[in-house]
Design a protein around this nucleic acid. Structure first.
Lengths: 357, 357
DNA sequence: AACCGTCGAGAAAACGCTATCTGGACGCGG
DNA sequence: CCGCGTCCAGATAGCGTTTTCTCGACGGTT
């Protein structure tokens, strides 16, 4: 029975109306739970829908009213933190009439513009986006067109809502932890300049700033060491390796997030060092961080909660709220085995082989 | 300038037509690269589109023709293998007029039905799905409605294409590797029965079958030990811990995929054992497997390639191909530190503490 | 010079739904 | 008994595209 393609979703609202012996408008009202339908009619229509296996065409709906679709734009599915946002969002939507669709930002095309546009083109009822770098002006225009919630963007437009982690608090916790352990030579590994400068709305920029601030406050200004590298695991690994083999080898490295920290850990091992030689800390608390072989000290920023909050704010806005809301999620330091007190001077084991297991 | 919401994407094909001084039909032809437009007109229309910032409404398109949208249904974004499929699919689509949208399968609702339906409701031009458990009959109906490519489904319907990994070959490689190392007590950790039985179309079912087959062929039938557990990390951890503390403690555990293997590794550590006591192998070769602290022996099944192939097959089908195609991706064993020869009898270190670093 | 085929362009009819408006029935108070 | 408000249901006009059909103009061939 292959080949011939039936006119997809061929049963229309008209068919249902005929079957139930009512008008199209009546059916429409029933499926939207709109005002003005008698219980009797509702019942007959529901039965007809059931019987015919009718499914409303979202395209047709989109031409007049709501599509009951929420769109979320995600920059990098490979970073396990983002799927956690999705988990949160999906569960928040479970049982609601809304469906979530995800548009992955094509890394080849700059910063999610295209993906967000794709969502708007599809007439989603609301947009959640995680591209903190898009220009404010464009974002305002977008927000004037469709309800928007931005994740991880530290500004406070009146046009859209935001859900952010308190990156300053989180970074403060990590840094204080490292300093209390006795570290002085603490390096920070982060993205290229272009991605961390713009007006401090990006989480990484805040973490960098806070790193600098805490170092200064602790009298370690002269120990500040910032390494910048592209996002790819290979690039991070290379940069970390270089840092570790340099003259100014730090005793601790604070990576801008866990994905990066994993690359740093690999470099530490490849340099013949262990966590006793170089402490490593990250940010996000991705699932793998608790693995005994990884055991990464990090900051939990509860991605599920952020995803859930984003959906709630968005649904609220769709329902009509216009005053902006800005949710801040509190981060929590999670101390694990990857951070240790620095070795006392002179007992370096620079050439020790990595012993696994 | 908040509040007032402009009629989203308010510039229509009509506006463009007026601006360019042509008919709507002409504009439509230009944006679809259809036959019958003079270079002069094409130019004028293109300019008008540019000038007005016109974007076609996908909803409206969906009512008549193509939406240039491909839908992919993914069961579990938290498992890093699936994002790799998406990476492959996204790159394969880069530069094409098609946009990918992802529908996450809500774990609360059975097996992706709902997510796939959501895609079809949105009039996608084609569907890629990763829910091997949906019933064949339903799938045939679906495939008669819209082009479909199934990922990881080991059957050969004529209605849809498939892209699978050669799970039998991959499992064979792992098992032979373990046996060659000298292991005899090799356990297999997999899903609950319901998910591995149905007609062997599911990868996990094939891996289980092959595990049994290889064990028998190696004369180890009496050593077969299959542990079943729900998917969650916690459940896997619990099951593995129980297996490790039982009387029949295996010297090697082959987990049905890497995510599971990670949970097993955690259990091994929590039981005070190391990879010298119990070897662990997985399947997928997710990125973290190469981390020095994880160092998981596994089978690479090249998710990027599978994603890419799926998109190519789908585009082909959309272009008109009707004969089914079934692509098989060859797996590769990747040996790392998590598999070692079994300890000689009597030198068990059951109670040794886990030394990290 | 008449004719035919080709090609570029436009007119107009769907596509399936929602929103708005109108109409009719019914019940209640004056 | 009339009028008025209330509530339920249907008629109807789009929504922004694509598609099919028609029309006219233009060359080239008899």
């Amino acid at each position: 029975m292959p080949a011939s393609r039936t006119p997809a979703g061929s049963v229309t609202i008209q068919d249902v109306a005929r079957e139930a012996g009512v008008s199209r408008a009546a059916v429409s009202k029933v499926i939207r739970n709109a005002y003005g339908v008698s219980p009797a009619m509702r019942e007959r229509v529901t039965a007809a829908i059931e019987q015919l296996g009718y499914r409303p065409s979202v395209s047709a709906r989109g031409m007049r009213g709501a599509t009951f679709t929420l769109g979320i734009e995600i920059p990098d599915l490979a970073n396990p933190f983002f799927p956690r946002l999705l988990t949160g969002a999906t569960t928040a939507l479970s049982g609601s009439p809304y469906q979530l669709i995800i548009a992955p930002a094509d890394p080849a095309h700059s910063e999610g513009h295209r993906a967000i546009q794709a969502l708007v083109d599809r007439k989603v009822d609301g947009v959640i986006a995680v591209s903190p770098l898009v220009e404010p002006a464009w974002l305002e225009t977008l927000a004037a067109t469709v309800p928007v919630v931005m994740l991880g963007r530290h500004d406070r437009s009146t046009g859209y809502d935001t859900v952010v982690n308190d990156d300053e608090a989180g970074t403060g916790q990590v840094m204080r932890h490292l300093i209390e352990l006795g570290h002085r030579d603490i390096a920070h590994l982060t993205y290229e300049e272009e991605k961390t400068v713009p007006g401090s709305v990006v989480p990484q920029a805040i973490r960098l700033e806070t790193y600098r601030k805490v170092m200064k406050e602790a009298g370690l200004a002269s120990h500040i060491q910032v390494v910048r590298t592209p996002m790819s695991e290979a690039a991070v690994h290379r940069a970390a390796l270089q840092l570790l083999s340099g003259l100014e080898r730090p005793t601790a490295i604070f990576a801008c997030h866990d994905e990066t920290a994993l690359g740093v850990q690999r470099a530490v091992a490849d340099a013949g060092l262990t966590s006793a030689d170089v402490s490593v800390a990250g940010y996000d608390d991705i699932e793998i961080a608790r693995h005994p072989g990884v055991s990464l000290t990090t900051v939990n920023q509860d991605g599920e909660r952020m995803g859930r909050l984003a959906v709630e704010l968005l649904l609220d806005r769709i329902k009509g709220r216009t005053e902006p809301r800005h949710e801040i999620v509190r981060p929590d330091l999670v101390v694990r085995g990857s951070t240790r007190p620095p070795r006392p001077r002179g007992s370096s084991t620079r050439l020790r082989a990595l012993g696994e297991g």
